[in-house]
Computed example of a mutant assay.
Amino acid sequence: MSSKEIALITGANKGIGLAAARQLGEQGYTVWLGCRDAARGESAVSELRNTGVDAHLLVLDVADTQSVAAAKGKFQEQAGTLDVLINNAGISLGGVPVRVTEETVDDMRAMFEVNTLGPMRVTQAFLPLLRRSKAARIVMVSSTLGSISDTMDTASPIWSAGYGGYSATKSALNMLTAKLAKELLPEGIRVNAVNPGYTATDLNDHKGYRTVEAAAKVIVELAAFNVLGPTGGFFHDGHSHQNRHPW
Rank of each mutant, 00 (worst) to 15 (best):
T81M: 14
S142Q: 05
A181N: 03
L176P: 02
N195P: 05
A215F: 02
G188A: 06
G34P: 00
A223N: 02
A181M: 08
N13P: 08
I189E: 07
R132H: 13
V68S: 07
T51Q: 13
G90R: 01
T144F: 15
D106A: 15
T201S: 11
N88V: 13
D150G: 00
V45T: 04
Q66R: 10
A178M: 15
S46Y: 08
T65D: 14
R131S: 08
T101I: 15
H241N: 04
K182Q: 10
H245M: 13
D153C: 05
G90W: 05
T177A: 13
I91F: 04
D153Q: 00
S156C: 15
E26C: 10
H56G: 14
K182S: 12
I16M: 00
H236G: 04
L33Y: 14
S43N: 11
V114W: 06
K14Y: 11
G28Y: 11
N195I: 07
V84R: 12
D61F: 08
G95Q: 07
G90I: 02
L85A: 05
N13F: 06
G197W: 09
A12L: 03
Q76S: 15
K217N: 12
D202L: 05
R244A: 06
H56D: 06
K179V: 15
P119V: 12
K134T: 15
L58H: 08
L57Y: 08
T51E: 14
E42P: 00
A216S: 09
T30V: 11
Q27S: 03
R244Q: 09
L228P: 03
V139A: 02
V191T: 09
K4C: 06
L58M: 15
Q66W: 07
T123W: 00
Q78V: 09
P186K: 04
A110S: 09
A168S: 12
V53P: 04
E103I: 02
A38H: 13
V227W: 08
R99T: 09
M175N: 12
K134R: 15
A70L: 12
G208C: 02
A178N: 10
A79D: 07
Y198G: 10
A178G: 14
R49S: 13
N192P: 01
L180G: 11
R36Y: 06
P246Y: 11
A216T: 05
V62Y: 08
H236T: 07
V68C: 05
G73F: 11
S67I: 10
Q66P: 06
G118R: 02
A69G: 01
E26Q: 13
Y166E: 07
T211L: 02
S149H: 10
A224F: 03
H241I: 04
A38D: 14
G238V: 00
L203N: 09
V191A: 03
L129N: 01
A21V: 02
C35F: 05
D83P: 12
T211M: 01
K217E: 07
V122E: 03
H236W: 09
F112G: 03
I86W: 04
D64P: 02
G41H: 03
T30Y: 07
D83H: 14
L127C: 04
D107S: 01
A161V: 11
E5K: 15
S149P: 00
V114S: 01
L8H: 13
S160G: 09
A71I: 03
E221F: 03
T154Q: 10
G94E: 07
V139D: 03
P196H: 09
V122M: 04
A155L: 06
Y29Q: 00
R99F: 10
R40Q: 15
D237F: 01
G164C: 04
D202Y: 12
T65W: 13
